[in-house]
C-alpha cells in the first residue's frame, strides 16, 4: 500500500514530505480526471485545460528536480529481480514526460484530434506495402471517418479519447509514486544526511528560478488536510532554520 493514499500523520525524515507531495499531486490528478470525464458530456473544456496545465507543470518540475538533486547524487543498487531502482525511476520520469507531452499535444490539436490519432494509428498498424499506400491517404482516412460518423461524433470521440488519455496518465503517475516510495525513498534515507535531505526537499518545494518561488509549496498545502498542512509548515520552519 503506498503511503500517499493514507493519512500522513508524521514525517520521520525530511524526505517523507514526498508522501504529502504525492498525495497533493494525486488529488489534483483525480480532480482533473473527473473534469475530463465531465467534458465527455459537454463539460467545461477550459477548466480541464487549466487543470491539465497545472498538473503537467507540477509533475515536470518535480521529476526534473528529483533527477537532479534527489536520485542524481545517489548510488544505485540492484533488486532481487535485477532491476536498478534509480535507473527505473528515471525511466518512469521519461515515460511521464512522454505521456504528458502527448496529452498536451492532443489538447492543442482541438476538436478533431481523434481523427488524426486514428489515421496515424491505422497507418502504423499496416504492413509495409499497405502502409506506404495508406500514408498517402491519411487525410482521406480522416475525412472518411468524419463523413461516416458526423461532426458531432468527431467531437464526442475526441473528448472520449482525451478522458482515456488523462486516466492513463493518472494511472502511470500512481504506479510511479508507489514505486518511488517503495524503492527510492529508502535509498535516499540510507545515503543522505538530514541536512542533505532538507536541502533536496527545499528544492522540491521552492523554485529558485521562479519569480514566485512558493508556487509548489502553496499548491501542495492547498490540497492537504489541516493536520497534514501543519506537518508541511513545520518542515518549512526547519528549512528556514537551516538556511539561516
Amino acid at each position: 500500500m503506498p503511503q500517499f493514499t493514507d493519512e500522513v500523520t508524521v514525517l520521520e525524515s525530511p524526505i517523507d514530505v514526498m508522501y504529502l507531495m504525492h498525495k497533493a499531486f494525486m488529488i489534483h490528478s483525480e480532480r482533473t480526471e473527473a473534469l475530463a470525464d465531465k467534458a465527455q458530456s459537454g463539460g467545461d473544456i477550459q477548466a480541464l485545460t487549466e487543470a491539465l496545465d497545472g498538473w503537467l507543470a507540477q509533475l515536470l518540475y518535480h521529476a526534473r528536480i528529483e533527477d537532479e538533486f534527489m536520485t542524481g547524487p545517489l548510488k544505485d543498487t540492484l533488486l532481487q529481480d535485477g532491476r536498478a531502482p534509480l535507473k527505473e525511476n528515471e525511466k518512469e520520469h521519461d515515460e511521464l514526460r512522454l505521456q504528458g507531452g502527448a496529452l498536451a499535444d492532443y489538447v492543442k490539436q482541438g476538436d478533431s484530434a481523434s481523427l488524426k490519432s486514428e489515421a496515424a494509428s491505422l497507418a502504423l498498424a499496416m504492413e509495409d506495402k499497405d502502409h506506404a499506400e495508406l500514408m498517402g491517404k491519411v487525410e482521406e482516412v480522416e475525412k472518411a471517418i468524419a463523413a461516416a460518423i458526423g461532426e458531432e461524433q468527431v467531437l464526442a470521440r475526441t473528448r472520449r479519447h482525451l478522458y482515456q488519455s488523462v486516466m492513463s496518465f493518472r494511472v502511470t503517475e500512481f504506479d510511479h509514486f508507489e514505486n518511488e516510495e517503495a524503492f527510492v525513498l529508502p535509498l535516499v534515507k540510507d545515503q543522505m544526511s538530514d541536512a542533505e535531505e532538507l536541502e533536496c526537499v527545499r528544492k522540491l518545494l521552492f523554485d529558485d528560478e521562479s519569480s514566485d518561488p512558493r508556487w509548489i509549496i502553496d499548491f501542495v498545502a492547498g490540497e492537504l488536510e489541516d493536520n497534514e498542512r501543519e506537518l508541511l509548515t513545520e518542515l518549512e520552519k526547519q528549512i528556514q532554520n537551516q538556511s539561516k
Partner: peptide
C-alpha cells in the same frame, strides 16, 4: 467525400 473499399476494410479491421 468518398473513400474506397480497401480504406474502409482497413479501418474496420484495424
Amino acid at each position: 467525400s468518398s473513400f474506397d473499399y480497401s480504406v474502409t476494410k482497413n479501418l474496420l479491421d484495424h
